[in-house]
Design a protein around this nucleic acid. Structure first.
Lengths: 175, 175
DNA sequence: CTTGGAAAGTCAACAACACTGACATAAAAC
DNA sequence: GTTTTATGTCAGTGTTGTTGACTTTCCAAG
């Protein structure tokens, strides 16, 4: 699917660091690929969410609460990178609809520890299944070396603080 | 950056097709990487757009008009995947602000051919420069094989009609 | 024990950007 | 000459983000 003219030239600098020479055209294609792929990436969950009257923001909250059960609102805020008012609106509906449970913190009673209820877990599963299925399909088509490369470039594309969050989640640390 | 337990097992099926065995955990990490990376991907343009009072929708329009000068509204609609009302709002402000020029079609006078003005080209350049710089940096860090894999997985992740658009743009066909 | 500040929640207002539905105009196609 | 297509517009609605102001709760340092 990637044409010959797209193969990047690689040279070795005197310092030993490998240099890539990339044309604007190659970079633009990467940008467009990212745009189109992200649409595909969110398409399936979006359809499901629509069915229940929720949006992407609800999905994100469900996802990260599922990943880090008992996480606090503040932690969620810094991961999602939105204002507390914005998150609160979403969280409130999820709590009202009994998809998320908010328990007063044991150590610090100001904090709220967030958990998915049975229903919440069910919806998160439905969303996650769809998205993982698409991911699995893409990974299968592309092959294992491509997947390795995919992950490497994505990590390099993150902002440093997002990388910090990502690394934490990878290591299973949800503090 | 990618830990040992993440390396995917690969087996050869009797048919000769390579099979990948992926855990939910591995796929979830991919999903999160995609989420965080897309934020990084749009962060720089978002800052610039904010400076001029525009949004992501304006950026997308500028990008694809720049890629396919003379493209029609209908073509833009199918690439962007939004309603004409939504696109029209954005396009109207860009034309009012003299970043985009809308010429009546020569072959078919119902159509409008869209072009960037001098100012439009300048803003598109500013946005594109920032985004390409981040892309270039990520590519450099990751190396050429990773870039190949990145693009392959992204293409596999698109919906089929998005793939069609993407392939067209790659080939320089903007019909 | 008091006070400062952090964590959480709320209210109001606003903007960007998507949607639907209805309607208008011009031009091509049949 | 009727229908279809391409475009544009108006009005209304919903999600998701923002800012700013304010309250309550509660830990912790003075």
């Amino acid at each position: 699917m990637i044409c010959d003219e797209d193969v990047m030239s690689e040279r070795q600098s005197p310092g030993g660091q490998s240099l890539l020479f990339l044309t604007d055209e190659q970079l633009r294609k990467g940008i467009e690929a990212m745009f189109f792929a992200y649409r595909g990436f969110t398409a399936d969950p979006d359809r499901i969410l629509n069915k229940y009257g929720y949006g992407r923001a609800h999905h994100r909250a469900l996802h990260f609460i599922s990943r880090a059960p008992g996480t606090t609102v503040n932690n969620l805020l810094s991961i999602l990178g939105v204002t507390k008012q914005s998150l609160n609106r979403v969280l409130r509906t999820l709590i009202e609809d009994e998809l998320v449970e908010s328990r007063v913190g044991t150590r610090d009673k100001r904090e709220r520890n967030l958990f998915l209820t049975e229903n919440g877990t069910a919806l998160e599963q439905e969303l996650s299944d769809a998205q993982r299925e698409r991911m699995r399909q893409a990974y299968r088509e592309a092959g294992p070396e491509a997947v390795q490369g995919f992950r490497t470039v994505l990590e390099a594309m993150m902002d440093t603080d997002m990388q910090r969050h990502f690394t934490r989640m990878k290591e299973g640390r949800h503090d």
